[in-house]
Amino acid sequence: MNRLTGRVALVTGGARGIGEAVVRAFADEGASVMITDVLDEAGRALQEETGTATRFCVADVTSESAWASAVAETERTFGPVSLLVNNAGIVEFGSIEETDPAVFRRVLDINLFGPWLGMRAVAPSMRRAGDGVILNVSSTAGLMGYASLGAYVASKWGLRGLTKAAALDLASDNIRVCSIHPGPISTPMTAGMDDSITVSQPIPRFGTPQEVARMAVFLAADATYSTGSEFVIDGGATTGSMILNSEQD
């Protein structure tokens, strides 16, 4: 229960879903956690529930000044940042022709530009801390294509590549950077999705935010020889299909 004692974390999109689970798991393991989100009420409620181990600040991940303020507030409250979880993200459905250019850019701004700003903002703080771990929450959509999700797929593939570039850029500062690739996870983002999308998986169910959070703890605390790597948590969805032809020879 003390694998992250002495660590200072900043978690984006931390008010609910996967982000909330990561906040709780990190705090349970002894970390001090700055929760950031645009959901003010939910973020403050989580901070009140988790107590002195956490603080909350409203932050738009697409704003360079918001990132600077969030890092500065984290340092004033807890000390230099040593863990960053770039979790904030959105999804928009639409084919290539149907998607409005402004929607496409908004998805990339939040899902890709935001994490880039975040890594840029925390790197000096992590140098002051002496080391760091950055976890970028991508998706199975960063490993394969999905119809009617062009903007989301582009953003998550981009985040996967950005992770590798950042791992190389920051290695000399003892900063590890990895990407996490969840499949179907029960969160507010997937609330409207039918269970049928998981039936052909080796593990035929939705995952939980807590399962993703446990992977994040492992990467932050124990995966000390991993950087620039993808860690997939998808019930085996990207392994292949288990659907068989019903006609037997």
Rank of each mutant, 00 (worst) to 15 (best):
W116N: 10
Q47M: 14
R214M: 14
N87S: 05
C57F: 14
A15R: 06
T208Q: 13
A102S: 15
V137C: 07
E98K: 08
N86F: 02
P204T: 01
I96E: 11
V58Q: 15
I180Q: 03
A27W: 02
M193D: 12
G19D: 09
I96T: 13
T62F: 07
A15E: 08
A220H: 03
F218K: 03
V217S: 08
V61H: 09
G192I: 02
V232Y: 07
R105W: 02
R24E: 13
G161V: 02
A221I: 03
S63M: 10
I96M: 09
A221W: 11
F26N: 08
S32N: 13
D195K: 11
S226N: 13
A154D: 00
D195I: 14
T36V: 06
M126H: 02
G161M: 03
F78V: 04
T54H: 06
F206W: 04
S155N: 00
H181I: 01
A213N: 05
A213P: 08
M119H: 06
R205K: 01
T190Q: 09
D60F: 03
R76S: 15
V217K: 08
A223K: 07
A88T: 07
R55D: 13
L84I: 01
E29C: 12
E49I: 08
S200Q: 10
T54A: 09
R7Y: 11
R120M: 05
F113S: 14
P188S: 10
R16K: 13
S200N: 12
I203L: 07
T36R: 08
G158H: 03
F113M: 15
